[in-house]
Amino acid sequence: MRWAGPIVGVCLWAGVASAESDPSEAARLASQMLQQASVALDEADGARNRVRALTATVQAYEAGLEAMRDGLRRAASREAELTARLQAREAEISELIGVLQTMESAPPPVLLLHPSGPLGVARSGMMLAEVTPGLNQRAQALSQDLAEVSDLRSIQQNALATLQEGLTGVQTARSELSKAVADRTDLPKRFAEDPVRTAILISSTETLDAFASGLSEIAGAEIAATNADISERKGAIKLPVSGVLLHKAGAADAAGITREGMIVATRPRALVTTPTAATIRYRGPLLDLGNVVILEPQPDLLFVLSGLNEVYGEAGQVIPRGTPVGLMGGAAPEIGTILSLSGDGTGTDRSETLYIEVREGGSPVDPETWFQTEKDG
């Protein structure tokens, strides 16, 4: 079954991105994205591959909420700009309204009289003919600004119901996705996990280096060979989560600590997916890294993802690209939080961090040699 919903959502998101000069249109397109995600959630109930359908649905909701935040931020900024402009022109506007009201209320015979006689009437008529178009133009510009302010305020007020539906929908989709992943039994496995060996290895190691080098020891059966090769995608692999690069490999974080991997800032409860087809070598809590997922896209290459709140799948499973492997932590944002950020745009709502480390032949390498990071998530 093919899913038109997420495809339409991508097209709408492109439309939102291109509507930079029109915050009203951006907010409307974001509303359509959330509605499309709601339809996709309903359709996912009867999907053959429910995990894939729900994954696309969660991503569609995330894109819609992202677009709504962006649209509201622009709408609030535009409203503030117009309001400041109108306030600055308050005296001019009052004078203009007074002139227009005087012209409108004066009886026609009075307008035709002039103390200087017919010549004065003709001159004043010529002056009035020159001034009137300018007054009309200023009046129309004022009317357009006032109408736009009213429209922007209406959009922000109407966004309340749309945001509530979107936040409720994405929470439902995430919950159903977690259940669908837990119920999944159709994935191939390269090896069976041995929980005892895993526990012994974790208790006997103090660093990620030591754990990664001992990964081959924790399988309960021989690991089937694979000829997977993703080298042609080197440097072009998308990040496993929608986010922005916070710290590069080797750069000091806020605490002055340097790490061999990079840190990506994400929004709370963001969905994390495998960026390539891979074998799950480990998933669960590890050392001081929190919940960790270690993926093996090809022999002697590991992607280490840490900082997740929930992790999906089982060690040994071979999962296709785009398969969900977990959710970020944090509390789902309330409507008031999103609306308060609508005029911000500083990225302070990306409160969660995903640590990504890449290891080749047992040694860490700069993740940016594999991942594409220049684009904002």
Rank of each mutant, 00 (worst) to 15 (best):
50 R>A: 12
280 I>D: 05
189 K>C: 13
375 K>Y: 07
72 L>W: 02
221 A>V: 14
241 V>C: 09
73 R>L: 05
113 L>A: 13
200 I>Q: 12
143 S>C: 09
257 I>A: 09
345 G>R: 02
264 V>N: 00
179 K>C: 12
365 V>S: 04
29 L>I: 09
136 N>I: 08
230 I>Q: 09
168 T>S: 13
42 D>W: 06
86 L>I: 08
25 E>N: 01
192 A>P: 01
241 V>T: 01
100 L>A: 11
97 I>C: 10
116 S>A: 15
18 S>R: 14
328 M>L: 13
345 G>W: 03
79 E>A: 06
355 Y>D: 05
256 G>D: 10
122 A>I: 12
43 E>T: 04
363 S>T: 13
265 A>F: 05
289 L>N: 07
264 V>R: 03
108 P>T: 15
149 V>I: 15
362 G>P: 07
104 E>N: 14
160 L>W: 04
119 L>W: 11
355 Y>W: 03
24 S>V: 10
173 A>N: 00
82 L>G: 07
289 L>M: 08
344 D>W: 06
186 D>M: 08
267 R>W: 05
219 A>M: 07
17 A>R: 11
105 S>D: 14
179 K>A: 15
176 E>V: 04
86 L>K: 01
296 E>W: 06
111 L>F: 08
137 Q>G: 12
22 D>R: 02
207 T>M: 00
237 I>M: 03
263 I>A: 14
83 T>V: 15
217 E>S: 14
52 R>K: 13
73 R>M: 06
56 A>F: 13
74 R>H: 08
12 L>T: 04
188 P>K: 03
343 G>W: 06
324 P>C: 09
41 L>E: 10
287 L>H: 15
52 R>M: 13
71 G>V: 08
287 L>K: 00
242 S>K: 03
165 E>C: 00
131 V>W: 10
326 G>Y: 04
329 G>R: 02
368 E>C: 10
217 E>D: 11
106 A>C: 14
247 H>L: 02
103 M>V: 13
286 L>H: 10
112 L>R: 15
66 E>A: 08
262 M>A: 15
236 A>T: 11
71 G>C: 09
52 R>L: 14
289 L>H: 11
344 D>E: 05
290 G>P: 05
210 A>R: 10
25 E>D: 06
44 A>Y: 07
166 G>Q: 05
77 S>Q: 02
233 R>A: 15
326 G>T: 05
255 A>L: 09
70 D>E: 11
335 I>P: 01
294 I>K: 03
140 Q>W: 09
253 D>W: 00
3 W>L: 15
360 E>I: 01
166 G>T: 00
96 L>W: 08
130 E>H: 10
220 G>H: 02
200 I>L: 14
270 A>I: 05
301 L>A: 08
21 S>P: 02
181 V>F: 14
149 V>E: 00
208 L>E: 12
219 A>N: 10
287 L>T: 01
162 T>I: 15
157 Q>K: 00
318 V>R: 05
148 E>W: 03
238 K>N: 11
135 L>M: 12
190 R>H: 12
48 R>I: 12
39 V>M: 11
249 A>W: 04
82 L>F: 11
50 R>M: 04
357 E>I: 03
175 S>R: 04
115 P>S: 12
309 N>D: 15
224 A>L: 10
302 L>M: 10
229 D>W: 01
65 L>G: 02
324 P>H: 02
97 I>K: 08
370 W>N: 02
275 P>V: 06
201 L>I: 12
149 V>A: 00
288 D>W: 02
136 N>W: 06
42 D>L: 13
21 S>M: 06
